[in-house]
């Protein structure tokens, strides 16, 4: 992309348009002059207890007061009861590793991280959690014991992670 942008800049001067030739096909391309940056502003108004919990090292879920269904990710509403009368409860922080992958080809927005391991664990109260696995992916396998911990990301904010339990 940087090569194309440079070629387009040169071609504006030399040819009169922001164009570049595609290396492989030789086909002429117009190199877009307009950039777009996307950054979403997402409401967490109704799940702010979740973030309060995280600060204290706890992973919280919502639980319907009527039918006792546990929701993780936490939901404001219980669609079964058509109600929104929810308790915030702390999840059991131990469980079993279901599966994992190591992301080598990363999205550009994760470029500053080393290859990271994403795992899914089933906690003791049956809820599944997707998070980064903090541990050597070569030494873990599905079925093994894990626990949930909260740590700070390198940007400084709190986030939960899955940590293998020895033995």
């Amino acid at each position: 992309m940087e090569d194309l942008k440079k070629a387009a800049e040169t071609n504006i001067r030399e040819y009169g348009f922001p164009v570049a030739i595609d290396e492989k096909s030789g086909a002429l391309q117009w190199v877009d002059m307009r950039d777009l940056t996307v950054k979403y502003i997402i409401s967490i108004e109704n799940i702010q207890n979740f973030f309060e919990g995280l600060k204290e090292g706890k992973l919280l879920a919502t639980k319907c007061k009527k039918c006792e269904e546990l929701f993780f990710p936490p939901q404001k509403d219980c669609p079964r009861c058509m109600d929104e009368d929810m308790d915030w409860v702390e999840l059991k922080n131990e469980g079993i590793l279901e599966t994992l992958t190591v992301i080598f080809v990363k999205p550009p927005s994760f470029a500053t991280y080393d290859p990271y391991t994403v795992a899914i664990a089933t906690l003791e109260d049956g809820v599944k959690v997707t998070a980064w696995l903090n541990g050597d992916p070569k030494k873990v396998k599905p079925g093994q014991k894990v626990k949930i911990e909260v740590s700070r990301r390198k940007e400084g904010y709190f986030m939960y992670e899955i940590v293998p339990v020895e033995g």
Binding site: T101, I103, V105, K106, P107, S109, F110, Y113, Y116, V118, T130, A131, W132, R153, M159
Partner: peptide
């Protein structure tokens, strides 16, 4: 927060 990709 976890950067899952389509292959992931």
């Amino acid at each position: 927060n976890f950067g899952l990709t389509f292959p992931g």
